[in-house]
């Protein structure tokens, strides 16, 4: 059992999109996956083609209240950032140990930096979605300074919603590529199919199986599979072939 934290320095980077498709990819790889969002206003269910009015059950809700989409258990726990028993609860549930059989993908909004950093210290890996936009780049020094070396030791970066037709976007992505080096595990291209799938109340894979973003995010998920066997106290970095491809 393992936990992967999805958390970025700036809202709007598509953290929930990445978390949802990371969960899908890990489930397709054979894991029993739960996605837990701690956002007070989450959109997780929309990425699975579910109705916007659907309210996800709490982490502590009984099994008969579970919402399962695509074989993935969707939960919320909005009190997590202020609940001192949250991490002990995850430990009791077995999510703070390596193992690819059962996986918890934790979707943490950008505004919950302190909670995000605390959760990352207990995770086998941290996925950090970034937009290649200058305002996002401007936040990286603060993020790196707050996280420190230990806080970045298991971090993998993903450039999301990359518009390669825009020069500044390409330059921003190139900057991230140079900055993060082997820790960049993927680039997900901007794709109108992503919001269209939400608008159609369909999973992206059903609405647009040829979606460029879908192909890209599947590679991201595949890159994270080896991280599930990483010890929580150990650094983790994606295999060199993954970072070269990114």
């Amino acid at each position: 059992m393992a936990m992967i934290v999805c958390h970025g320095p700036k809202g709007g980077a598509g953290t929930t999109f990445i978390a949802a498709h990371l969960a899908t990819g890990l489930a397709e790889a054979g894991a029993d996956v739960t996605v837990l969002t701690v956002s007070p206003r989450d959109t997780l269910a929309l990425h699975f083609g579910l109705q916007p009015a659907l309210s996800l059950p709490s982490m502590t809700a009984p099994v008969n209240e579970a919402v399962v989409a695509g074989g993935i258990n969707l939960r919320h726990y909005r009190r997590a950032p202020v609940d001192p028993d949250f991490i002990p609860m995850l430990r009791d549930l077995g999510y703070l140990a390596p193992g690819a059989h059962r996986v918890l993908v934790l979707d943490v909004p950008a505004g919950e930096q302190a909670f995000g950093r605390r959760a990352i210290t207990h995770a086998c890996a941290h996925v950090c979605p970034l937009n290649a936009a200058p305002d996002t780049l401007a936040l990286l020094p603060a993020m790196f300074g707050e996280a420190g070396e230990a806080g970045l030791a298991r971090t993998a970066f993903v450039v999301n919603a990359l518009d390669e037709t825009r020069r500044l976007s390409r330059h921003g992505a190139a900057f991230i590529r140079e900055l993060t080096g082997p820790r960049l595990i993927g680039r997900v291209r901007l794709d109108e199919a992503v919001p269209e799938a939400i608008a159609m109340l369909q999973p992206l894979a059903r609405y647009a199986p040829a979606s460029a973003a879908l192909a890209d995010v599947r590679l991201v998920a595949a890159a994270m599979v080896p991280a599930l066997d990483n010890n929580v106290s150990d650094a983790w970095i994606a295999p060199a072939a993954v970072s070269r491809a990114a």
Binding site: P134, L137, A138, L140, P141, A142, F144, G145, A147, G148, E149, L152, A153, L168, H171, F175, L179, T180, G181, P182, R183, A235, I237
Partner: peptide, 24 residues
């Protein structure tokens, strides 16, 4: 881009360089 130039001046960005050193 001036923002890239400004960011490159910030020593905090080297944190990741130090973390990556063995892997790099």
């Amino acid at each position: 881009w001036p923002i890239l130039e400004a960011l490159l001046r910030d020593p905090r960005l080297q944190t990741l360089d130090q973390v990556n050193a063995p892997a790099a």
